[in-house]
Each structure stands twice: as C-alpha cells, then as structure tokens.
Write a protein that binds this DNA or RNA. Sequence first.
DNA 1: CTGAAAGCGCTAACAT
DNA 2: ATGTTAGCGCTTTCAG
Lengths: 362, 362
Amino acid sequence: MTRPRISDVAAAAGVSVTTVSLVLNNVESRISADTRLRVQEAAQAVGYTPSSVARGLRTQQTRTVGLISDHIATTPFAGRMLAGAQDAARAAGHLVFLIDTGGDKRIEHEAIAALSAQRVDAMIYASMWHQILEAPAGLPAGTVFLDCRPAGGGFRSVVPDDRAGGAAAVRELVRAGHRRIAYLDTSDTTPIASGLRHEGYLSVLAEAGIPVDPALHVTGETSAHGGRDAAERLLDLPEDRRPTAIFCFNDRMAGGVYTAAHHRGLEIPRDLSIVGYDDQQLIAAEQDPPLTTVALPHYEMGRWAMEVALGVRAEGEEDAAHQMECPVIRRDSVGPPPAQVAKPNRRRASHTDRLPEAAIDR
Amino acid sequence: MTRPRISDVAAAAGVSVTTVSLVLNNVESRISADTRLRVQEAAQAVGYTPSSVARGLRTQQTRTVGLISDHIATTPFAGRMLAGAQDAARAAGHLVFLIDTGGDKRIEHEAIAALSAQRVDAMIYASMWHQILEAPAGLPAGTVFLDCRPAGGGFRSVVPDDRAGGAAAVRELVRAGHRRIAYLDTSDTTPIASGLRHEGYLSVLAEAGIPVDPALHVTGETSAHGGRDAAERLLDLPEDRRPTAIFCFNDRMAGGVYTAAHHRGLEIPRDLSIVGYDDQQLIAAEQDPPLTTVALPHYEMGRWAMEVALGVRAEGEEDAAHQMECPVIRRDSVGPPPAQVAKPNRRRASHTDRLPEAAIDR
DNA sequence: CTGAAAGCGCTAACAT
DNA sequence: ATGTTAGCGCTTTCAG
C-alpha cells in the first residue's frame, strides 16, 4: 500500500490537482464552497498528507531549520535555549534539525554540509556557554549565533549581558547593606563571562563608593569543590577584612560556598550572604536556604535567535549583536550583613549611611 | 545567484547528468577513472551540493528521523539519550528532527503529522522518565519507544531495568556489611521505577536473609527537601531500629539525606552509607563525599532506540521490549556499618557472619 | 562505458 | 471557478 498523493484526492473528489492544492493551502477563495468541502472530505477519506519533500522541492522552501551546537542538547545546562528555539520554530511552522557536534570540528563540518544539503531555510549556531569563537567555514550568510559571537563579526548573535548581570548581583548585595563583597571567580580563563561579570562587580562597587580590595577577588576551579576551596580562603581572612557577602561565578561554585560556610558553623544568610549565577534548578533551588542567583535568559535567547533566523523578528541594525538581560532570582541567601561586633569603623558607617540609592538603583 | 545543480556539474565536466549522479554516489565503477575525476573536479569547481530534498523525493527515503519527546531536550535530565540517538543517527547517515512537546497532546499530535509530512524514515517516541503510557494515535508502525513503553504493546521499546538496578544498589550495601537498609522512596505514585526499585530492594533482602522492616520503607516528595524530611524520620528511629544505610529513589533525594546527616553531625559514610539513583552529575559527583549511585543508561538507550528504529540493529523477537542494565557508579558514600556500640545482638551478628557471598554476588 | 528520458509529488503560471 | 502543464533536482531504468 502506497501513500495517497494529491492526484488520488483529486480523483476521489472529481476535481483537478490544482483545485486540491488550492483548497488544501487555503489559497484565494476562488474555489466554490462546496468543491472546497468535497475536496476536504476526499482528502480526509483517502488519508492524504501532503509531502513536505515534494513541496520543498517545488517551492524551494523546506520549512526546516538547522540548529548546530557544541553540547547544548546533551548537557544538563542550556536545554532551555532549545525550548525557546523550538517554540519559535513551531510558531512559524518550522521543524528543527538538531545536531550536537560534541565540539568535534569534523562533525561540525559534516553537519553544516548535511544541513545545507537538506536545504534548511535557516541555521543557528549555538554554544553551551557565552564565548567568542571562530565562525566555522561554510555557514550560510543568515546564520545566527546563539550564546556566542563570531570573532570576526559578520553574523547576527545573541548573548547574555553578563556585565549587567554581574552588576545586578552585586547591587543586590549592596542594597542589603553589604560593603565587603567578594567575587568568587572561576580560574578558567576561557569563559568571557568571567571578566564581564567582574566588570559589573567593579562598576557597582564604584557606584556605591566602596573601595576595591584585591583580596576579595579569588578564583577557583569551576565546581562545587573549587568554590569551597576559594571560600575557605576568603573566610580565613582576618575578621575586619573578611567578606560579609560572596558573589559567585556560578551556582555550582556557590554550592561549595554553602559547604564551606556550614563547616564553620556559619548560617546563611545570617552570617554570610551569597549570590550565584546561572539559576541551575537542580542546584540553586535546592540549596538550604535556596540560593539567590542571576538567571541566564536561555529560553529568551533561543527564542530570539530562532525568530531572527526565520525573519519573523525584524532586528534593528545596531541589534546585530544582541545582549539579553539576566534577571536576578531572589531566594533566601541574601540578608543584611551581620552586626559589627568589634572595632566599629567610622569611615565604613558613614559610607553606608549616605549610600546614594539612586546610584545603585538602575 | 542560484545554487548549482547536477546539470551544471554535468555541463562543466562535459558529461551527462547520469554520469555525474553515478560518480557522486559511488555506484558501480562502470565509469572510467578519468571521467570520474573530471566529474569530481567539476563538482568541486562549481561548488555543488546535491539536494537531499530532490533526492528524497526521487528515492522516497529522506535519511531523516523524527524524535518526539515530552521534555527530554529541555530538561537537565536525559540529554544523554539524545546524544546516544544522535550518534547512532549520524553513524547511519541520518539527520534528526527533534520535537519537544512539553507534554502537550495537541502539540504532540501536530508533531506526528509534521514528521509524517516530512516523510521521515523512522520515528522515536521518547519520555523523560521511565513510564508506561498510552501510545498517541497516528504513530507510524515502526516507531520505537525510548525510556517508556506503550500501554497496549505493539511497538518496540527500551527502558532501564529498574528492578535490577534497585537490586544492585542494595546489594552494594549488603556487601559492605549492612543489615538495616532503608529504602527512601518517592511518594509520587506515577513513576513505575519506584515500585520496580522497591522490588529489587526486597529481592536482595530476601537473598541475604535480611528480614523486611516496614519502618525502613519511607517516602517523600521527589526533591532534596523531601529526601531530607524522610531521612529525618528514619534517623529519629530508636538506635536499634535505625538504618545504617539508605538507598534513595534518586540523587536529588539523596542530596537531602546528606543535609539531614550533616545536621545531626553524622559523617558519611562512617556513620551512614547512602546510595542514590540516576547519577546526575551536578548532584552525585559534587556531593561531599561524592555519592555512590546507580546510573540510568541514557546514552545506551538512546543509541539502541535509534539503531533499531533505523534497522541497523536487528533485535530479536523477544527483545521487542528491551530492558537495559543500570550500572552502579561507586564513589565514596558507602562504607561498612558503624561498629555496634550498645546491645550487641547475637542474632544479627550470626547472620552477618554466615552471609552467603554467592547469594548476593550476582 | 555513457546518455536519454521518465517520474518522485507538488505548486503556480497560464489557459479556459 | 476550475483545469493543463511545466518544472523543482534528482535517481534509475533502459538503450546504445
């Protein structure tokens, strides 16, 4: 038994294939209402489903999109990007081919070729985390970069605004009254986010008139363990130099800070406030107390990328390299700093008092 | 500028399209070596990429597969299934359409229709977690179910062997010398895995001649919090009835057990041994000490599903509903039970001594 | 060893 | 208001 085709429907309805095509595609109502009905019934009766393949060949539009990524599909990390991209694609009536290259350049090359051969209407090149990378050869012109940017430019892209995100995190802490705020950074120099968040940290300190203490910028391996080690160093500082709050490069490292704090009998947020980054559900929401963190707008970025790739969103010229806001997710790991027990410091107190709300409020 | 087609290559090489097609598809070397070379060079020169769409129309084979899932792509959970499926697809020269329905039946229905319209060569229906579900209407005959099974049968499927997995977890504990082993179960009655793992638990207890204590089977919400609460109840038991080891429904809940243990000053595994399930990297590997757990063979299941869907793996008849082994991942949360301090119990001791290794060893 | 030609299933001029 | 027909770009008989 072979699949019914349009001519079968035409025969069953006693009309031409043109008519069938016209009614099934809702083209110009130049077809009479009752032929229309007859055709629809005939199509139903024979169980007809138009072939997207034939249609694609004829129209030169496949209504498919290729999404190439290094690891996003196979990693517990950025699945929400996929969800956003998918939703946008579905809304536009497109199907998505997903290829995870695992970071293998050869596979990536093949993927681009295969996707081109499939005549996808658009292509998205996604990364697991915010980075700047060499655009692979052979990418079609309209390709949009998701969570990464091409080193040489030439493609549209969307990435999180990590600078603003870092600033928002630290501002959260400054608002709560903290003055000794550490940045527990990753020692990995690859992620561009590390530096950007640091810039955000520095800018808010400046806004709030808080002097920078280099001892409060520590780094560690990007893991709970690394976070814990780095936190130990911070908490080993003499009491007047010890931070009352720690902004962590990510939630995993923040998890390590919890461990370090618990081991010293420090209660969060009473004795120490913590802000993470990434809003990884499995970590952030399940800490005790739940971790206040900055969310990466994965879903929105995925959606944006797909929408501009498909042309349903007309992005402005200046928007070719889009930055997306990272909202802070308030949970319970931030509180006011512990009351100063010893050596109250006039200088510190006065600064806190005249903290310009306006300056830290946007 | 339009894409070059096969006739352009033919013209450039001074041969017919037949010849071009033949050499580009490596068909029967009835083509002379030098025409072959000329054609290849011409193809290269004009930048020719065969259209999979046209080829698909002609051959009625698209070399594409549809993968419909509820949530696997957008959840931090089972991405490895995708990786396995992808790798198998790539090995077979197929591209995969991925559709996440978010559990929405209407979207699922549209997805099946869209994929059929695309004339995919095969289809996989995947679930985020092991369950038995009603097969949606319209699924093509050869569809294979991944991490789930159709209630009525009729489709091939692959799921983890949760019964054996539960048994392996508990055996791990029995081997370490434990006799008072709790099963910290989920209170959610949906997951079929819960009951299967319980069966495994019971069977190993029986094997080892350990009497079942109903007080040692507790349930909680499927989260760190739920795990913690349930663990509290277990640890509140009078000393002689308290478990020395806890097998948890999953790693998240096991994380809660760590918290409960720490709060009481219990050290793992010195005072309490723990085994989880799922091997979620973000949780299991980052616990302190790292959690011994049972891994779900996501990658292998994804691979298996794709291979049978594509027919590269000839599964036996009896294998239509395949069960895949869940390996235990040994880390550092299991140790011998704490030395009995009070009321040494002759019965208990004698049992431990004559524990039949053979019985618990397979 | 190579080429001509039919046809995969559809859409869209162009007729009528 | 509806039908005829020419392709979309390829593979594959069937002839030479």
